[in-house]
Amino acid sequence: MRVEVGSTLWFLLRDRAAVISAGFLLSVALAAVFAPILTPYAAQGMGDPDLSRKFAAPGIEHPFGADGLGRDQVARLMFGARRSLSMGVLVVVAAIAVGTPLGVVAGYLGGWVDELLMRVTDVFLAFPPLLLAIAIAAALGASYVNAVAAIAATWWPWYARLARAQTLSVRERAYIEAARGIGVRHRVIMRRHILPNILTPIVVQGTLDVGTAILVAAGLSFIGLGTQAPYADWGVMISDGRLYFLSGRWWLSTFPGLAIFLTAMAFNFLGDGVRVAADPRLRRTL
């Protein structure tokens, strides 16, 4: 395992798009973590108004301008990144944590367990994801945590399916039969033999999905079902600025929009890079 992670990293470092993406994401993450130190407008970033600077245009003082309550957009973006990034990551982590074990159990045990679990995932997949997330978030109440739970609830079936498909192929390997012959319990086989050997495609898919999850989370926040005022995430910022866009205050929605776009794209490049680097058969095409 150690060796494989090492060689994957080695190949990943040779993928320029992935390295640049990782660098970009790292700086966004650092900006989010150290926002209070990095910006002189930390209080505004957390939501305090400063009406003297209402709708300040981009300039030296406020490179991305200020919003209707006079809050510096750079600070808002940095503090917003905390929520947007963490929502994206938490959604994927939660979806993997729920979907993967169910998929492994379904694929390994087969039979009626498989049938039951897969029909449940089918039901979840039958709903349009955003609509289901809206329904769940609305039912649970609008908040950051509920938005994460709502999106994860629409997302885990994909990981259940992926994990099941991978399990079906790993299950036939000789070392699974050898472990059964030794008398290893089923749950130990699933945990120690199947799980480590299906993790790579799941991690790859997870990396690819974080960007999309950020987009969906921004969508929920945009319609008011995610992060609540006075805090902001990028979706809330787009939503707040959209009314002024056509009246010339273009900077309000444009910069959070760009932030979402670039972050989602960076996760896609990174995920693609990991996928290629983790698969020895794809490496040669580099």
Binding site: M1, A174, A178, G181, P196
Partner: peptide, 15 residues
Amino acid sequence: QLVLQNPFSSLNPRM
């Protein structure tokens, strides 16, 4: 106990 033909496929590569 059982010992199989090809040790490389009967031993989990990650252990």
